[in-house]
Structures are given as structure tokens and as C-alpha cells.
């Protein structure tokens, strides 16, 4: 039993992979490296998909690219109000990144969203986006006036906290359960459960994160 707990703790830790020797050494943790891998895959895939685009007689690859872009932006577009079209590319990028990092556990990497700092950064980015959009669309006077209501001040802290903790807790919970299963039953059974915990739950949490950000944005710019 103590052995199992120790193995679990080893899996939970996010160790520093290497250190960049500038400014007294910047530690690069595992989540950053996996994020780089995701970025590289996404960028290479996009470059491959968008080579020699044409208006008519499109190739099969271009048809796939058009389908992917239409579906993705359509999904995010459905959440936003008509005034908020400018935010659709950002939100779809976040959706892609969180979605891929949640299901990357399937390929044997540790999901970067399992690291609290990554989800906290994403939540703070959402908070910044919402507040700046509020200032931009409604003017600084109206934006500042909403803080007369103390609930709105409280929202500034609870919203990013809940966004961050929801994503982190879900990914971490799924990760811990999967690791325990892998230790207890190494064959077949983890594969069945990973369909729910890695694929379904991961994509759902990415959707929920983007949906809530869109909800806050709609509220801020109306």
C-alpha cells in the first residue's frame, strides 16, 4: 500500500526537466516541454493543411481544412453574442490547446493541464480578456461603476479561481484514477476507462472552460 502511494506521488510531481543558464537559471518544467510539443504539432499540422489553397477545384486536404475551421469556429460562435465575433479566434485556439493537452495522456505524456500553474495562467488570461473587453466595449466609467456592487468585486476572484480549479481538479482526478488502475490492473481495463476519463472528460472540460469564458465575455461587453 505504501509502495502504491509512493508511486502515485512520483507521478503527481511535475519535475524540472532542464535549466536554462541565464539570469541565475530558469527552470523548465515538464508541462512547458509538453506544451512546446503540442505547439509544434499544431503549427506543423496547420502549415501542412494550409499549403497552396485555391478558390475552385479544391484538393481533398483543403476540404478537410475548411471543414475543421468551419466546425470549430461554428462551435465557439454559437456561444458568443453577435457583438463578440472578434473573440472567436482566441477562444477556438484555447479550446484546441486545452482539448489536445487533456487527451495527450493517451500518448504517454503527462497532461500539462495537470500542472496548477498552467490552468492558473489560462484562468488569468480569461480574466484579463474579460476585463479589458469590458473596458473597451463599455467605456471605463461604466466598467468601474459595476464595482459599486460588492458581488462584482467578489466575482473578480472567484471566477478565475473556479475556472482554474475545475480544470486542474478534473484532469488531476482523471490522471490519478487512471494511474491507480494501471497499477492495479495493467491490462485491457485501463483502455476501457481511458475512453471516458481521457477522451470524453478531457474534451468536455475544454468545452466547459471555453463556454464559461464566453459567458463572462458576453456579460462584460453587453
Amino acid at each position: 500500500m505504501g509502495n502504491l502511494a509512493k508511486e502515485l506521488m512520483a507521478e503527481l510531481e511535475c519535475e524540472t526537466v532542464f535549466t536554462i543558464p541565464v539570469l541565475g537559471g530558469i527552470g523548465i518544467s515538464e508541462s512547458v516541454v509538453v506544451t512546446w510539443i503540442i505547439m509544434a504539432v499544431l503549427i506543423l499540422f496547420s502549415i501542412w493543411l494550409t499549403r497552396d489553397l485555391k478558390v475552385d477545384h479544391i484538393s481533398r486536404r483543403q476540404a478537410v481544412a475548411e471543414l475543421l475551421v468551419t466546425k470549430l469556429t461554428g462551435l465557439v460562435d454559437g456561444m458568443m453574442c453577435p457583438e463578440g465575433k472578434a473573440f472567436v479566434p482566441y477562444l477556438s485556439t484555447v479550446l484546441l490547446y486545452i482539448g489536445i493537452s487533456n487527451i495527450i495522456g493517451l500518448f504517454g505524456f503527462k497532461p500539462p493541464t495537470k500542472d496548477l500553474t498552467v490552468t492558473l495562467t489560462l484562468a488569468l488570461m480569461s480574466l484579463l480578456l474579460v476585463e479589458i473587453a469590458g473596458i473597451y466595449y463599455r467605456g471605463i466609467k461604466k466598467w468601474a461603476f459595476q464595482f459599486v456592487n460588492p458581488i462584482n468585486v467578489l466575482d473578480l476572484f472567484t471566477r478565475p479561481l473556479s475556472l482554474c480549479m475545475r480544470l486542474f481538479g478534473n484532469v488531476l482526478g482523471a490522471f490519478v484514477i487512471m494511474e491507480m488502475l494501471k497499477i492495479v490492473v495493467p491490462y485491457v481495463v485501463p483502455a476501457v476507462f481511458s475512453v471516458y476519463f481521457d477522451l470524453f472528460d478531457g474534451l468536455l472540460q475544454a468545452y466547459v472552460f471555453v463556454f464559461l469564458t464566453a459567458l463572462y465575455l458576453n456579460e462584460a461587453i453587453e
Partner: peptide, 11 residues
């Protein structure tokens, strides 16, 4: 997914 968050917080 939103209701599940409560359980996740507990975890």
C-alpha cells in the same frame, strides 16, 4: 460538468 465541479473541489 458544472455540478461535477463540487465533487472535484472536494477531491
Amino acid at each position: 460538468a458544472l455540478a461535477e465541479a463540487t465533487a472535484i473541489y472536494g477531491f
